[in-house]
Design a protein around this nucleic acid. Structure first.
Lengths: 191, 191
DNA sequence: CTAGATTGTCTAGCAGTGCTAGGATTCAGT
DNA sequence: ACTGAATCCTAGCACTGCTAGACAATCTAG
């Protein structure tokens, strides 16, 4: 059925169009500005069309989040592959993380700040999520003494805390490099 | 002017009544449930009364946040004072922080997650904020090698990350103790 | 090529949101 | 009791997410 295929392809294209518009709008004016009406206007359809693709607005944000996590995983891979040793790898990953959060604040918010229906530590966790976590874990593992899983969670938490508190203007806007340096040196331990 | 005083006292009482209702509602049903109508109904006044006390809804959340920060500072003080050495002090503060975040998630959200107009690192920062930060700093300082300010920011960030990622179900619900242990041991350094 | 069924899309509307203008009411001082 | 001020509420605006029902386009079958 070529007809069916063409239709489905059109549907798929429109879906990505919606996601693209949502992401652009969120990055330029924040998630508060991503309303059904403005989003519908951006893709040049009426609001009900959005609900033919997504259950509700939150599902749109979740979809953007999933895209972002896949992106972030790639960023991690690139950062780590350009490092020559474990310490440089950890530093590169940390730097890349904070850089991504800084340059895509809305996507970052969708991934790790907004309430989400995405399952993180469960059986039906999307592969993209575990991939990203495993990248952090691989970078951290060389410095673990006993419990690499917990160490990964703590290292990620520290990065997440720095990213969000910086974005919320709760940390000094300066000293970004100093914080990164401090964080990494505390985690590589005495060596 | 006794009249003026009585009126002002009544105003003050109503202000705290509003804050109390907002906090209770936020803790029991989340900040999304804190709407002008529901809040007005809770204090048995009409919506416009709220605007006689606060500029807008965000200002109410900010006021709740300020109260919470004062509370948190006291919690810090109590935790540290019951510790016998620096390591125990750091551990007690970290434990108290995560405990507070866990037991008052809505207040925590108002303090450190929601967008806020509160100035954190500026000249007109409310004293309560700097007090709280200084408590963390005092607990961290014994373990600083060069830059205690940055170390404090990073330690706070790690706590904040753990608190928010746990609350958002992005970390394993178990291993709370392990994460705390890992965090503290990485920060006390090799000693 | 046409009739009927299926899809797709839009208009209009509901219940809820933050916030405010204007009028009604209560209160204080004389 | 009267006047001016302080206080409070009703009603409403422009917005939100979301959906029912009408309409149009497209595909399927004879």
């Amino acid at each position: 059925m070529p007809t069916q295929t063409r239709r489905e392809r059109a549907r798929e294209e429109r879906r990505t169009l919606i996601l693209r518009a949502a992401r652009d709008l969120a990055e330029s004016e924040g998630w508060d500005a991503v309303t059904t009406r403005r989003l519908a206007e951006a893709v040049d359809y009426s609001q009900p069309v959005l609900y033919g693709h997504f259950k509700n607005m939150d599902a749109i944000a979740d979809a953007v989040a999933l895209e972002g996590i896949a992106e972030l995983t790639e960023v991690f891979r690139a950062a780590r592959s350009s490092a020559t040793d474990d310490t440089a790898g950890l530093r590169a990953l940390a730097y890349a993380y904070l850089e991504y959060a800084d340059q895509h604040p809305a996507v970052y918010e969708a991934m790790f700040v907004r309430r989400t229906d995405l399952q993180f530590g469960a059986a039906d966790t999307p592969p993209a999520l575990t991939d990203a976590f495993n990248q952090i874990r691989a970078a951290v593992e060389p410095f673990a003494t006993d419990d690499p899983e917990s160490l990964t969670e703590v290292f990620w938490s520290a990065l997440h805390g720095i990213a969000t508190l910086t974005h919320g203007r709760r940390l000094r806007p300066t000293h970004r490099q100093a914080r990164l340096q401090t964080l990494v040196s505390r985690f590589i331990g005495n060596k």
